[in-house]
Structures are given as C-alpha cells and as structure tokens.
Design a protein around this nucleic acid. Sequence first.
DNA 1: TCCTGATCTCAACGTCTGTTGAATCCGAGT
DNA 2: ACTCGGATTCAACAGACGTTGAGATCAGGA
Lengths: 203, 203
Amino acid sequence: MTDTRGSARRGRRPGDSGTREAILDAARGRFSSEGFRSATVRAIAGDAGVDPSLVMHFFGTKQALFVAAMEFPINPADVVPHIVGPGIDGLGERLVRFLLGLVDELGEANPMLGLVRSAVGHPDAARMMREFLGEAILDRVAAAIEADRPRLRADLCASQIVGILMARQILALPELAAADRETLVGVYGRTIQRYLTEPLDPR
Amino acid sequence: MTDTRGSARRGRRPGDSGTREAILDAARGRFSSEGFRSATVRAIAGDAGVDPSLVMHFFGTKQALFVAAMEFPINPADVVPHIVGPGIDGLGERLVRFLLGLVDELGEANPMLGLVRSAVGHPDAARMMREFLGEAILDRVAAAIEADRPRLRADLCASQIVGILMARQILALPELAAADRETLVGVYGRTIQRYLTEPLDPR
DNA sequence: TCCTGATCTCAACGTCTGTTGAATCCGAGT
DNA sequence: ACTCGGATTCAACAGACGTTGAGATCAGGA
C-alpha cells in the first residue's frame, strides 16, 4: 500500500532498482528447474515482477540471458587449487565433498543443474557444460595428478559427477537423495580416486 | 513415380499401410534426440510422411504417443536373469557390457536417451525412468546379490549408468565417446561391482 | 454390390512463444 | 530549471504449437 498511484505504472521506478539482478535470479531459478526450452521469458519476467520486454531490453535475447544467468557463481581457478593442493591422497573425497556441498548450498538456482537440464537437446548448452566441466575443473585436476590418459580420466570423472547430479537432483532416486552425505563422499570419493589413478587397460 | 494421381490425396492408402509403426519409429527418433518438450507432433508426422492429425487419431495425445514410443524394445525380465545368472563374479562387467552394447545397437532411436532427455524438467518422464531403472533392472540385480542396503546400492549403480549415458551420448565428451568399449567395460564394471558389494559405511 | 468402419488429409481453432516499437516516467548532470 | 537518457510498461506481431472436426477415400465383410 505504499504505492500511492493505483496499480501498474510505466516508466522508471524510484530507487536504485536492482532489477537486473532480480531478473538474473529469476532466470537462474527457471533455467535450473526447467531447462532452456521450457523456461519462458514471460515466466522469468513474472518471477522478477517485471514486464517481459524489460528482459529483452537488458539482455537482448533469451539465449544471451541464458548465458548470463548460467555464469558460474564461483571461480574454479580460485577453488580447485585448494582441493588439489593437499595432494593425491583423499583427492577424490575432497572433490565429491565440495560438489555435494555446493549443490546443497546453491539449492534451486544451481547453474550446473541448468546446464545439465539444457544440455539435453540443446547442443550449445551441451558445449557450455562440456567446456565448464573440462577446462575449468577436470583438466586442472588431471594436470595435477600424474597418470596416463589424463583427458580420458577427466571424462570418466565427469560421467560420475553428472550421474550424481542426474540421479540425486533430477531423477530424485529416493535412497540416494536421502543418503547421508559422508556416506556418499566415501563411496563416490573412492570411485573418483580410482578414475584418476588406477590403470585403465582392459584386463 | 508409382503414384499415378498427382500429389497428396485424402483417404486411405491401398495396402497394409504400417503407418502406425512408421509414426512410432519417427517418434522414437525425435523423442530420443530432442526430448519430450522439443520434439513436436508436426515434426514426427513429417518424418513419418503423414498429417499431424493422423498422429492424434492413432494416439490421442502427445503424452500418450510418448508413452507408446518409449516402451522398451526388450523385456528386462528376459535378459536380466541371463546377466545375473553366472553369479557375482564379473556381474558389474556383464551389466556394463550389456548396456554399452544396447546403446550402440539402438543408435538414434534409443528409449533410454528419450527418457533421460525428457526426465529433465518433466517429472512424469523422470518417474518413468526411475521406475524402469529401479523396478525393471536394478531391483532384480540387487535382489540377486546378498548385501546390506540393496536399494541404495541400486541407486548408486543407476547414478553411474545415467552418467555414462549423459557423458557419452548427450554431452559427447570426446575421449569417452572415442574410448575402446572393453576399456570402459573394465573401468565401469569395477565401479558397478563395488557399488553392489563393497561396504558402504563412511570411513 | 452395398455398407461399415478404419485410415487419411485439410483447414482451422485458440494458446503460447520470443521479440519489437512506441510511449511514459524519472534520476542525474548541467 | 531543463534537458538527456536509461528504466519501465503496454500493445501487438508473426510464427509455432497441440488439438479438433469435418470430410474424403478405400478395404473387407455381408
């Protein structure tokens, strides 16, 4: 009721607005929970309490909004050394613990989920996800260890990490979603550790 | 040029038609490569060389077409005993070898890919995938082994299996897509085997 | 031979989509 | 005080979507 002049008004609102950030937040939420195709500009604008054309005014295109919204909230270059630093021992566990913590912390508006949900049937998003996983994280990890075929090892890790996201957050497999985090850290940590270090030859 | 009377004609075509199967094939292809939302009835009808309303005539609804098209081409009850039968030794490898063989064999029109691609942002498809993976396959495997927390073990296996599909077929991680199949059977087989048999307690 | 019912197309509907253009409003710099 | 330009909304477009209803055509049984 602080709005003195009826319902919707045109033109600029008083104050600093912060509307652009509100749109980005709404976009993160929608893209993360519905993927690129199903998330609509109108719904995002609605969540942000704003007209759809304002979204276009700021970002020009739904695609550009997606790229802006899926920017990762933390810089892998900052955090990966912190994980790799202590050495090979327990590296798998540290990676998994970091991932699960990040997922719980980010909740609904998780760019990783948005990328996974959009990669499906949207090659551009698949490329974004591939590049993020590969160049930003796994290549750094693979470079830190000393083993043969580092890129295949990175892909193996990626396949289990993406599988964790799919199974826990998207398919919501019940026992997996309910499992104690440290149990998962132990089990998946050993898997990642093996992918990084064990011999890869068949038999 | 066997069509003697001009271009498009109404009414029933001569012969046994087999059109229903053609529509199902086209639907499998589209749903598998684009997911439920992005695949359109019009495109499916176009692939089958048919009018969109004929699709509705046969299946009533896009949703019903999806369910019909994603029916699994093999019966898990037939094949799972064949995989589990030889015993615990090498069970993980046999499962992975079967999965990878199936993926290569089915190619483009793979219901598993369709379900994965649709599960994302489409809770009904997620439930279908969950039920298929769980009840049709993993519960049978989990029941065959003797270990604690069989359902959690089944979910762990599912997370790696879904991750393989995502990483190889959808994200198309290059080294993973190019890797020798028996190498993957060895590496992933050990993972599945561990998920089925190793102790799960943290630490 | 005629009738019935399944197969098939055409045209259209209402809705939702991303995007555009013009019009308004207002804070800030001069 | 006066402009300038960014912020914001409204109204509308053109295209795609799933779905519908009516009609045409033909195969097969009576």
